[in-house]
């Protein structure tokens, strides 16, 4: 099922991002099974920060056995245009319908900083490849015997500055066929809404929520998560011992009327269960 069809039908979607396993398939399956009680849609990361894992596609195939509608993440960091199209055809063959098209972190920032960065395909070009497949075509003009259709989404990082340039790129993603956006974690509801108002996006926005448990985690993310800024106010509230889950319930309540869904990142099952229950 396309995630956008679900949004259209139900008005709102909750999704969760899981990291594919390295070697322990069973542990991963248990996690998927547990989260599937709450989530129909799940994202599977693609060699997150350049670290070697099972591919997003294989994780998605495993998850499908648990009734999950996977959103595979695909980056251009490690694959050229041939491999990207091959991965998309493979996903289609396995009944995967949703894909998040990403440029990907640079190899120098990840698990193997000696590896060559491929970078033949950026996120906009990947969306274009998806668009071509949906017209029954491969890049280069080769016709396929049938149309290979996906619901393709793209990333939105509201922290990227200059904002004008950031919005310029988001509009470009929309123009080449992004049908939804999944955002970086939101830590400041007002700032996020201000961004959305300014960006005037046409497609549904699924906001990232990453429950930051304590000040130490907040400081770590502020320093290490690409482009992410944790507001001082949140740092203060965490250091004052406020319940972190209630802080995120509050953030979500403020932004919920303006978004089409929530995308939980680095979250434990009990945390998301609590937040979803409170927010409804």
């Amino acid at each position: 099922m396309y995630i956008t069809d679900y949004i259209e039908k139900h008005g709102f979607v909750y999704t969760v991002e899981l990291t594919p396993p390295v070697v322990f398939r069973e542990k991963f399956e248990k996690k998927v099974q547990k989260f599937s009680k709450l989530f129909k849609f799940m994202n599977f990361t693609d060699f997150q920060r350049g670290t070697v894992k099972v591919t997003s596609l294989v994780a998605a195939i495993i998850a499908k056995d648990y009734g999950v509608e996977p959103v595979i993440q695909l980056t251009g960091r490690d694959r050229n245009r041939i491999a990207i199209q091959g991965e998309l055809l493979s996903a289609y063959a396995m009944g995967i319908e949703n894909v998040l098209c990403l440029t990907g972190d640079h190899t120098s920032l990840g698990g193997d900083d000696q590896a060559k960065y491929v970078g033949d395909v950026d996120s906009v070009q990947m969306l274009k490849l998806v668009e071509l497949l949906s017209c029954g075509e491969l890049y280069g003009g080769k016709k396929l015997r049938k149309k290979v259709e996906f619901c393709a989404g793209a990333a939105l990082n509201h922290y990227s500055e200059p904002r004008e340039l950031n919005i310029f790129k988001l509009h470009q993603k929309e123009r080449v066929g992004a049908r939804f956006f999944q955002t970086q974690p939101v830590f400041d509801a007002e700032e996020f809404l201000k961004f959305l108002e300014e960006a005037k996006l046409k497609v549904p926005v699924i906001a990232g929520i990453m429950p930051v448990r304590n000040l130490k985690m907040a400081e770590f993310l502020d320093k290490n998560l690409s482009g992410v800024k944790i507001p001082e106010q949140l740092m203060e509230r965490l250091s004052n011992g406020e319940d972190y889950l209630d802080i995120f319930v509050e953030i979500l309540r403020v932004i919920k009327p303006h978004i089409a869904g929530v995308h939980f990142m680095m979250a434990k099952y009990d945390e998301v269960a609590y937040i979803v229950d409170k927010v409804g």
């Binding site: 960065y117 950026d122 070009q125 990227s160």
Partner: peptide
């Protein structure tokens, strides 16, 4: 990243 359609989300 050799991006032809940029910038990436990491611009800060």
């Amino acid at each position: 990243k050799g991006i032809f359609n940029g910038p990436c989300g990491g611009v800060h």
